[in-house]
Design a protein around this nucleic acid. Structure first.
Lengths: 158, 158
DNA sequence: CTTAAATAGTACTAAAAGAGTACTGTTTAT
DNA sequence: ATAAACAGTACTCTTTTAGTACTATTTAAG
């Protein structure tokens, strides 16, 4: 349906809150109360985020979760990757052969891959730091966690 | 799951084939055979596309479907709008209030709307004409059906 | 060394969405 | 009058998503 899953949405909510207090440890229960979601659900989300090294966990009494790195180094794309089941891609034919065997060499596929690229870059270009203090409309410092192309901030202005 | 639905995928397949022969009339049955899908399924897709004026239909014997305008004036965004059930938007909170009432004034929402804008523009910038003869990597004539911003073609190069 | 508050992992159930099919009605050239 | 085509509706099956439950493990504190 061209939507991110609810769990991914929850993930951004939780992480955005955590980004307001980096380094601080939050228990899953506390975060659930703060964000207004069920504790088991938030737990589930945090466990997935932990597996993908977006949060680090401290076990035992007085344990909890904290961001594993500064908010500017966590992009929305990374959150999506952590919480969506399937690999990134708007179409199935990006991954598997599909039914388009008739078309000599599916010309469409290349186009979808380009579109995917644009979408992905859009998600990579927004960091948790941006989520906390929204981007100034005109320009803003990008997330750019790993090694990215130029910012698209200028494009996403209204 | 951040994917377009299969029906939308089928829609691009069918329309791309039709775009190779604009003005020509195709029966749903023929298109199904060409593309390699079930006839009822292709029918369903074409009916939806017709309701959104992407194809025009001719009823009666020797009837069929044809593009309602030149391929360059039909964008992928329009296909998505025609075949996806829900209104365009990566998050639910783009439309309804949601559970984030706790957060004083969901700062996240504005960011999602900007991301949506980028994604949407990416889909608007690819036309059926582009699908038929894939974009040259460097630059290419955009779809720009209605009144769009500048092209993003430069961005989606590999 | 026992306890309680945490996370870790797994698995299950229920609800929602997606996909495909079937059936009935309408149009129109021959 | 007939047959080939589109139009519309509604139903069923499958898949995915969401949420929950249960058990195990870790660790600070008394």
């Amino acid at each position: 349906m061209l939507r991110i899953s609810k769990l991914t949405d929850y993930g951004t909510l939780v992480l955005t809150h955590m980004a307001s207090f980096p380094d601080r440890l939050f228990s899953a229960t506390d975060l659930a109360a703060i964000v207004g979601l069920g504790a088991p659900t938030v737990s589930k989300v945090l466990k997935s985020l932990g597996r993908h090294d977006l949060v680090r966990s401290v076990r035992g009494l007085h344990g909890g979760y904290a961001l594993s790195r500064p908010p500017a180094q966590i992009s929305v794309a990374q959150i999506v990757d952590a919480l969506e089941e399937q690999p990134f891609g708007l179409t199935e034919c990006s991954a598997s052969a599909g039914t388009c065997d008739f078309e000599s060499d599916c010309r469409i596929r290349a186009n979808w891959q380009r579109i995917n690229g644009v979408v992905r870059r859009a998600l990579e270009d927004v960091s948790l730091a941006d989520m906390v203090s929204p981007l100034p409309v005109a320009q803003a410092g990008g997330a750019r966690p790993i090694a990215g192309p130029q910012s698209i901030k200028g494009r996403i202005a209204p």
